[in-house]
Structure formats: C-alpha cells, structure tokens
C-alpha cells in the first residue's frame, strides 16, 4: 500500500506543474516555520541604528527597517507565528464544524434546525468585523486571535460537512453499516465522515490562506500580535508609512511573502483532493 501511495503522490505532483509549485512552496514555508530562527541570517529583534532603512543588498537581501533589523530574518521567523495561528484556527474550526455539521446532517430534525440557525446567526455578521470585535473584547493575545479566526470560519465547515453528510446519509453503505451492528455514532465517525474528507481538504487549504490573511489583517490594524514580535501583518503596517518616502522594501517583502503563502494554500487544495481520494488512484 505504501509504495502505491508514494507512486500516486508522485503521479499527482508530476502531472500538474501548478500543484508541484504549490507543494514546493508549502515545503519552503514549513521549513521556515520549523527552522526559521536557526537559519535566519540575523537576530530578528536586534536593532542597529547604524544600519537603519538600508535598501536590499548582498548583506541584507530584503533590506533593513527603521530600527535596522534585517527584514529577511524577520520574514522568516514570522512564518512560524503566522502559519501557527492559521493552522490552529483552521484545526479548531474544522473539528468543531465537522462535529456540528455531521450531527446536523445525520440526525436532521431538531438538531439540524438548532445548529443551522446558530450558524446563520453567525453568518449575519460581517466576519472580519466580528473577528475584530472578538479580539477587542477578549484581549490582545495570540490565543484570542486563534479563537476569533476559528469562530468566523465555523459556518463554512459546518455547512459543507452538513450538506456532504446529507447526500450520503441514505447511501447503501450506511444501511450496510447499520446492518453490521454499528451504532449511530460509529456510523457517523467511521463510515460517513471519512467520505467527506476529500471535499474538506480543498476547503481546509483554501481556508488556510484565508486564515493567514485574517490573522495578518488583525495585526495590521493593531489588534492581536503586538510589536516588536515579527509578524507579516505588523511588518506591512509598519512599512506602509515608509512607502511614501521611498523605502518600499519595508512593506513589499513581507506583503509579497504573505501573498505567496495565501496563493500557495489556494493552489494546494486541488492537489490535496487528488491525493486523499482513493477513487483517484488507479
């Protein structure tokens, strides 16, 4: 089985250059997230007034900021925080959303009505404003950014899982599972939910990009992560004031990396679906 999985992975990646590019980029981002601090050329927090606002050069590839900190190092180190927030938020909303969606779709009736109405209520708010409100109310911590991002993503997961479960609820294999002595909970968890996963992978991946953007957006407007912590949103916000005076690199590089990360996750979705769906293996 493992050799066929490997062959299949190789096939999916080699057959589609875009997927290949997305996977490569994802690998780079993961490496930065894990080893960012070790491989960064400079200390991301060490300021050096003598080297402030230097344009990109051989010594500082992305230039330096107003305090003389190396932007490349800061961008690399920030990867862990930004990806971390996104992964945690997506994982949280995926878990809770899947549970709610599976219950709503499988049991129908009252549980469906209650869950669906709650989700509708959540969706009635402008989501980013809701996230701002939540962080402002709960306090400026990384954990609260994660909670806020998770809550505003909850409707997506709940709705997608609910509809996917709904179409499979009457399938023959569910009846068969009941005949072979599975309890209702077991049917939901072991038989129905795994079949929803391939579809969910695409959503998770798209949502990751969105969650990164959301976390960076909150930091950009001053909520959430506080300076001097290296974080893409803060770096863009701080750099934005220097664009007018000609120091474009302060905002451009963190912004470009942020964009690449979002782009990468959006492209990854299709590739992941092909990987995880056994029907795509031949």
């Amino acid at each position: 089985m493992t050799s066929t999985t490997f062959q299949h992975t190789r096939y999916v990646i080699s057959e589609n250059l875009v997927t290949f590019g997305a996977f490569a980029l994802f690998l780079v981002l993961t490496l930065f997230a894990i080893f960012g601090e070790a491989i960064a050329p400079y200390d991301p927090l060490a300021s050096n007034a003598a080297a402030a606002l230097q344009p990109p050069s051989a010594a500082h590839w992305f230039g330096t900021d107003q305090l003389g900190r190396d932007i490349l190092s800061r961008v690399m180190v920030a990867t862990r925080l930004d990806l971390g927030i996104a992964v945690m938020a997506v994982a949280l909303s995926f878990l809770v959303g899947s549970l709610l969606g599976t219950c709503a779709g499988y049991f129908g009736g009252w549980s469906d009505r209650i869950i669906s109405r709650c989700i509708d209520t959540l969706m009635a708010f402008p989501l980013f404003v809701l996230a701002m409100g939540l962080v402002a109310a709960l306090g400026n911590t990384v954990a609260n950014i994660i909670y806020a991002t998770a809550i505003i993503n909850l409707p997506l997961y709940t709705r997608v899982v609910r509809s996917e479960i709904l179409v499979r609820r009457e399938a023959g294999f569910v009846e068969a599972a009941r005949l072979t002595g599975n309890s209702e909970w077991r049917i939901m968890a072991r038989h129905l939910f795994p079949n929803v996963l391939p579809v969910m992978m695409v959503h998770i991946s798209l949502n990751m990009g969105w969650a990164i953007l959301n976390a960076a957006g909150l930091s950009f407007i001053g909520l959430g992560v506080q300076p001097p912590t290296p974080e893409w949103g803060i770096m863009v916000a701080e750099g934005a004031t220097y664009i007018v005076s000609g120091e474009w690199w302060l905002a451009l590089f963190p912004g470009a990396v942020l964009m690449m990360a979002v782009f990468c996750f959006n492209l990854l979705g299709d590739g992941l679906r092909d990987l995880i769906d056994p029907r795509m293996r031949t």
């Binding site: 023959g172 294999f173 009846e175 068969a176 005949l179 002595g181 599975n182 795994p194 079949n195 056994p278």
Partner: peptide, 23 residues
C-alpha cells in the same frame, strides 16, 4: 444493533457500488 438477532438477518444490496464504503 445490540440485539442477538442482528446477525441472524442480513441484507445483500441492489447496487454493489453504492453499498460499499468507498474508503
């Protein structure tokens, strides 16, 4: 499902594709 007679009555389904869990 908890009844001792559960295994006494079994069903073979019409559509062999639909009745097997794809995963």
């Amino acid at each position: 499902p908890k009844s001792p007679h559960r295994k006494g009555i079994q069903l073979v389904f019409q559509d062999p594709t639909d009745s097997l869990n794809p995963r």
